[in-house]
Amino acid sequence: MINIQKFLEEFKEQYVDNEATGMTMESEFKSFSSWDSLTAISLLAEIKYRYNVDIEEDDLNRCSRVADVYHLIEKKIAHA
């Protein structure tokens, strides 16, 4: 089980100027203004580094809430 609190903190760190301080698991992570392809790349690298899980950009693009990404990682770990 991934620690939700830590996961959320790592997620928030991908955004510039503390833009995502108020982010929750239900937030639409692509709706923050600094989100772009570079944020996605960085987030995926962070996930690979922390959880040793490879997620494709396409799979990330299909997620909308932070929780969707969380579940995607959990699923990948379970099937590893």
Binding site: S37, L38, I41, S42, L44, A45, K48, Y49, E57
Partner: peptide, 11 residues
């Protein structure tokens, strides 16, 4: 390929 270069660098 920005993602590949990013990964190469940070890892």
């Amino acid at each position: 390929d920005g993602k590949q270069i990013f990964d190469f660098t940070v890892f």
